[in-house]
Measured scan of single mutants.
Amino acid sequence: FIDQHRAALIARVTNVEWLLDALYGKVLTDEQYQAVRAEPTNPSKMRKLFSFTPAWNWTCKDLLLQALRESQSYLVEDLER
Rank of each mutant, 00 (worst) to 15 (best):
T14K: 10
L64S: 02
Y33E: 06
Q66V: 07
Y33V: 15
V76K: 05
Q34H: 14
W56I: 08
Q72C: 10
N57T: 13
V36Y: 00
L79K: 01
D3L: 01
L9G: 05
R12H: 11
I10E: 05
Q32M: 04
N42C: 05
A67W: 07
A35M: 11
K48A: 03
E70V: 11
P40E: 11
R12L: 00
Y33C: 15
Q4D: 08
E70I: 07
S51Q: 11
L23C: 08
A22Q: 14
L68M: 08
G25K: 14
Q66A: 09
W18G: 15
D3W: 06
L63Y: 14
E70Y: 06
P54A: 14
L65M: 11
A7M: 11
R12D: 04
M46F: 02
E77P: 04
T53V: 15
Y74G: 15
R47F: 03
A7L: 07
R47M: 12
Q66W: 02
R6L: 09
V36C: 14
Q4Y: 03
L20Q: 01
N15P: 02
V27Y: 05
L63I: 09
V13W: 01
L20R: 01
N42A: 12
V36T: 00
D3V: 02
L64M: 15
V16W: 06
A7N: 14
A55Y: 13
M46N: 00
S71Y: 06
Y24W: 10
P40Y: 05
L20W: 00
T41N: 14
Q32N: 01
F52N: 02
D62H: 10
W18Y: 15
L19R: 01
F50D: 00
E39F: 04
Y24P: 05
W56F: 07
L75N: 05
T14P: 02
A22R: 15
H5E: 08
Q4V: 12
D78V: 08
D30I: 10
T59C: 12
V76P: 05
F50Y: 14
Y24R: 15
E17A: 05
E80G: 10
W56P: 02
V16G: 01
V36H: 02
M46T: 03
Y24H: 14
E77G: 07
K61A: 09
E70C: 11
A55S: 15
E17D: 14
R6M: 13
A55P: 09
H5R: 03
V36L: 02
Y33T: 12
N15W: 05
S73C: 11
E31T: 07
D21E: 13
D62Y: 05
I10T: 07
A7C: 11
E31K: 05
A38E: 12
A8D: 15
Y24K: 15
A22H: 12
C60D: 15
N57E: 10
K48Q: 04
A55V: 08
N42R: 06
S44L: 14
Q72W: 05
E70Q: 14
F50E: 02
A22C: 12
E77K: 10
D78Y: 11
E70W: 09
D21C: 07
A55C: 12
Q4S: 06
F1M: 04
N42V: 05
L19W: 05
D21R: 09
S51F: 05
C60V: 07
N15H: 10
Y74Q: 15
A7S: 14
F50K: 00
N57C: 10
F1W: 00
T29A: 06
N57W: 07
K48W: 09
T41W: 05
L65C: 11
L79D: 07
N42M: 07
N57S: 14
V76Y: 06
R6K: 14
Y33P: 05
H5V: 12
E17S: 06
L28Q: 01
L75Q: 05
Q66S: 10
V13P: 08
T14R: 11
P54Y: 12
W18H: 14
N15Q: 10
Q66P: 07
D30K: 08
W56G: 02
L63H: 08
L9S: 01
R12I: 02
S73A: 13
L49D: 01
S71F: 02
K45G: 03
F52W: 04
T59P: 08
Y33W: 07
Q32I: 03
V13D: 04
D62E: 14
E70G: 06
D78T: 09
W56V: 04
Y74S: 15
A7I: 05
V76S: 00
L23M: 08
P54M: 10
S73Y: 12
A8N: 06
V36W: 03
R47L: 10
D3H: 05
V36K: 09
L65A: 13
K26E: 09
L49R: 07
E39Y: 07
T53R: 07
F52D: 00
E39K: 06
S44Q: 14
Y74W: 14
L28W: 03
L9W: 02
W56C: 00
V13I: 07
C60N: 13
L9D: 03
K48T: 05
F50G: 00
R37Q: 14
L68A: 03
K61R: 08
D3F: 03
D78E: 13
E39I: 01
L79Y: 01
Q72F: 00
Q34S: 08
E39P: 01
P43V: 13
L79R: 03
L28V: 03
A35L: 11
K61M: 08
V76D: 10
P54Q: 13
D62W: 05
V27E: 04
H5S: 04
L20P: 06
L20S: 06
L79C: 06
S73T: 13
Q32L: 00
R6F: 06
L9V: 00
